[in-house]
């Protein structure tokens, strides 16, 4: 098997450019699916198609009014499902690392479960726990597809020296904490959007996530760290600024739309964009976390960079 103790793959785990590009395509399509799902919620279109898995008893209902959003979401979801099946099969046939193949299967199971949750939300008329679970699993599934793109990429497979992080807490641990906090914040956002909670917990979550992102980004942009960490760290900061602005816009648009007889365009834009940038934040943080685990050593375990390099070199 092409694995070494400590999670190191040997050089026999070759970069498969086609597979990597396909994993990127799947992740990109999943991001579009997230936006399509956000448009369903923002336009209050979740029940515009009362049946499932068919839509008005057919595969292609009249695309009018909010049916466009709900059925469009189903079409994109079907495409992502097919892409995920193809990716899992491709990984199963061509990927030498067993844990990556298993991750492909996990993605397949996740997308199947996600489809079922989506169906249940329709059939049981948007029960909040199911709707929130559907929204949360969407974020996890996006992270899974992004992770597969990372694991199949040349940057992950290439053997490069590892560097030591001497900070406390260890940067990898800090990134993990930030990623978990961002996921919790996205779940709180989903709960607020589906009217299960007020805005208070989501605002507190935003505060915690902001502190963690700024801290993580500052640590990960240290000059001695490689560009593959500094770049996502900078991206995290930029996305955070955009997300705070979009969150404020979404809240103001929600207040302004209280008396409106239908969702306003500004409300739809801000809420959908807020969800999309939230997903990008989570995925960026997840990528940074993975790269930390791949490229960083704990100072306590490996006191010097040279010894670390020796350990990492086969």
């Amino acid at each position: 098997m092409a694995e070494l103790p400590g999670g190191q793959e040997s050089v026999s785990a070759r970069h498969n450019a086609g597979l990597h590009r396909f994993a990127l395509l799947t992740a990109g399509a999943t991001f579009l699916l997230l936006i399509a799902g956000a448009l369903v919620t923002s336009n209050d279109a979740g029940l515009a198609v009362p049946d499932w898995p068919l839509s008005y008893g057919t595969w292609m209902p009249p695309m009018v009014g909010n049916i466009v959003y709900e059925h469009g979401h189903r079409l994109v979801a079907t495409s992502v499902g097919l892409l995920t099946i193809a990716l899992a099969v491709w990984l199963g046939l061509r990927e030498p690392r067993r844990w990556v193949r298993r991750l492909g299967l996990l993605a397949l199971a996740a997308v199947a479960l996600q489809g079922i949750l989506g169906g249940l939300t329709v059939l049981y008329l948007l029960p909040r726990p199911v709707s929130i679970a559907h929204a949360s699993l969407a974020q996890l599934f996006f992270c899974l597809t992004v992770s597969l793109a990372v694991f199949t990429g040349p940057g992950w497979i290439r053997q490069t020296p590892r560097v030591t992080d001497e900070g406390t807490p260890w940067l990898g641990r800090l990134c993990e904490l930030t990623t978990v906090a961002l996921f919790i914040q996205l779940v709180l956002g989903a709960a607020f959007r589906h009217q299960a909670i007020g805005v208070g917990p989501h605002l507190l979550g935003a505060l915690a996530a902001t502190v963690l992102i700024v801290w993580t980004s500052r640590r990960a942009r240290a000059p001695h760290l490689p560009g593959e960490m500094r770049r996502p760290a900078l991206l995290l900061l930029l996305l955070l600024v955009a997300q705070l602005l979009l969150g404020t816009g979404a809240y103001l648009a929600r207040l302004a739309a209280v008396d409106s007889s239908q969702p306003t365009p500004s409300f739809v834009f801000f809420t959908a964009a807020h969800l999309a940038v939230g997903a990008l934040l989570l995925a960026t943080s997840a990528v940074l976390t993975l790269r930390c685990h791949r490229r960083l050593l704990r100072a306590a375990e490996f006191p010097s960079v040279s010894s670390a390099i020796q350990r990492a070199t086969p």
Binding site: D51, W52, P53, L54, G57, A88, G92, L105, L108, A109, A112, G115, I116, G119, L120, L123
Partner: peptide, 18 residues
């Protein structure tokens, strides 16, 4: 893969109500 497919089919049939 077989398990996932069977599970999905069972749930689809079980949940499929128009």
């Amino acid at each position: 893969l077989t398990g996932t497919t069977v599970l999905c089919l069972v749930i689809l049939v079980g949940c499929s109500r128009g």
